[in-house]
């Protein structure tokens, strides 16, 4: 069964991309997506919006087992190509509650081409303040941030990921309707 994507793919994808660009430019500042498609089974509506916006036949996606209707719809709308292992994938999709592969095992780029690295789409329950203090490019001053439903020891893994800069992975944290960017340039202190 195929599910409907955006009403207007061209305009809606542009809106979602601009929101994503702003989220990466000013990290850990949750933003509400301006438009949402009907949710794909097993994924949050905002996750579906990002997949339609970012995925096509030029990139590979790794995800834990997804419902057949979701896979069929993504194959139809995005020409989805699945990667066999997370280590090979350009995008790693982690629906709420799924186990996080070690960030250090994902594609981190090479010293000459650090952009050839993975982007993790990580679903969380909600954004709540007061878990960590973050700074770096995109922060006028340090910002406090937190999310419920993050995998255990996520922030510890993140610090190791940032320490490899300019290598590393980038993360998009996704709640039902919101999005927060976490580029590798972001410095995070717990507590």
């Amino acid at each position: 069964m195929l599910l409907q994507a955006f009403d207007n793919m061209v305009q809606d994808c542009q809106q979602v991309f601009r929101c994503t660009l702003a989220a990466m430019a000013e990290p850990l500042l949750p933003r509400t997506l301006p438009c949402l498609p009907p949710a794909l089974p097993g994924l949050k509506p905002a996750t579906s919006a990002l997949l339609y916006t970012l995925i096509d036949q030029d990139v590979t996606l790794w995800a834990p087992a997804l419902p057949p209707a979701t896979l069929a719809s993504l194959r139809f709308h995005c020409a989805l190509r699945l990667a066999d292992t997370p280590e090979q994938a350009d995008f790693i999709l982690l629906p709420a509650g799924s186990a996080l592969p070690p960030l250090s095992s994902l594609r981190a780029g090479s010293p000459e081409y650090p952009d050839r690295s993975a982007t993790v789409l990580l679903e969380v329950e909600d954004f709540t303040p007061q878990q960590v203090e973050a700074s770096g490019p995109g922060f006028a001053s340090p910002r406090r941030f937190g999310a419920t439903g993050l995998p255990p020891a996520f922030w510890t893994q993140w610090q190791a990921n940032h320490a490899r800069f300019p290598l590393g992975v980038d993360v998009l944290l996704i709640s039902a309707t919101q999005l927060a960017g976490l580029p590798r340039s972001t410095v995070v202190q717990e507590g």
């Binding site: 793919m9 660009l21 952009d115 340039s185």
Partner: peptide, 18 residues
Amino acid sequence: ENTKRMLRRALLKAVAIP
């Protein structure tokens, strides 16, 4: 749209590695 997506993915990486 394919070209735009390619550029958009590149832009997100560019922002992540200033």
